[in-house]
Design a protein around this nucleic acid. Structure first.
Lengths: 210, 210
DNA sequence: GTCTATATCGTGATAGAC
DNA sequence: GTCTATCACGATATAGAC
């Protein structure tokens, strides 16, 4: 993991003549590269172990440039995990439709979000960091949980809707931990649809059954 | 008396005259104090943010003494979370008794372990560290999960027993995350028995129902 | 046994040259 | 805009005095 970078498209064959001025800055511009590098670094290492220098190296820029664009490390993190993640998006997808399919729709939506690397990376960054970094824990509590749970809970016709919604969330969080963070078998290699089939009835009971 | 409580940084009033040689070594001996301090430090801050100096300060000893007794930081961590946690203990308690009460016994056992600070602290240390520190993740995978799950799974009379046992574990892990690590409401303040009542049927379904 | 002193390194952040 | 140079700090770990 020294020089090669995932973004670099297929090691172009060695060109002759004078090197292009853009040789070291192919692909997206520096700002975007920094943001992407920050996301994957925070996702893989968590907040504490991620360094500005490490982000800079992954983005193939100078460390000072990271500060120049984003300021402090906290601000880099905030920018990296700032999720458009509009919670409204989940409402029609999951809550719409027949109530008896709620658990299955939620389980499938949850897994699809985590199976897609594009959406998984910032979530991993938040999860890996929330355990020790208070600002990340705030993001998890206030955005991922509160804004989402209170909307879901508002639609439920059960006693203790917020507690039930949170228990459902705790199960999904635990699955994310074991499957994507700790990578414990057999869950880490299980077929997503098998997980959906097993988990859906649980979510259904929490959210729709009294 | 909490005179040697690590949370209270030695609030002893400033004494006059020549310091007693024992002033800094009241209570348990240094080795025990270091171990206890290490447990709470790792539990509260996670592996990365915990420093040998911090442990030494909490234990009111010199930092070099920590190295002298336990070696490197990794070895301090291993000693701190080395859980006697005999998995055999859980077998009769939980698996014994009528099968239809399995979920409830497991839920109650799980919460009792986490509600007791004595058993919670090393588990918190493992959980907070496993997210970023590979050695801690190994402990979580190999000891807390594998040794426990494979015994439980061996007793189950359902298809996919290990996957089902792990799904049950994922739910409990998620509850531990939200209640004890992230402290998200309303789960963080919920009555343990209410949680048992809600979660028991879920565990029951995973472990005993086909 | 305990602690002082230190070697060595990596961190976040800033100032300022080009 | 980009990068060099540097500051101030705290980390692990060790050598060795008493």
């Amino acid at each position: 993991m020294t020089e090669e970078n995932p973004e670099e498209p297929a090691a172009a064959p060695r060109r002759r003549g004078r090197p292009s001025r853009k040789a070291a800055s192919e692909g997206p511009d520096a700002r975007t590269r920094i943001l992407e590098a920050a996301r994957t670094e925070f996702a893989e290492r968590g907040y504490d172990k991620t360094s500005i220098r490490g982000i800079a190296k992954a983005a193939r820029v100078d460390a000072a440039l990271v500060h120049h664009y984003f300021g402090t490390k906290d601000e880099v993190f905030a920018a990296a995990v700032e999720v458009t993640f509009e919670p409204a998006l989940v409402i029609p997808t999951v809550l719409g439709g027949p109530p008896e399919g709620l658990g299955e729709r939620l389980a499938r939506f949850f897994l699809s979000v985590w199976e897609d690397p594009g959406t998984r990376t910032p979530l991993l960054a938040i999860l890996r960091s929330a355990v020790t970094h208070e600002a990340a824990a705030d993001v998890l509590r206030d955005f991922v949980l509160r804004r989402l749970l209170e909307r879901v809970a508002a639609e439920l016709d059960v006693p203790d809707p917020t507690l039930r919604a949170e228990l459902a969330a705790s199960h999904m969080l635990g699955i994310a931990m074991l499957r994507y963070v700790v990578r414990a078998e057999p869950l880490a290699s299980a077929d997503p649809e098998d997980i959906v089939a097993m988990v859906a009835p649980t979510l259904q009971r929490y959210l729709a059954e009294s």
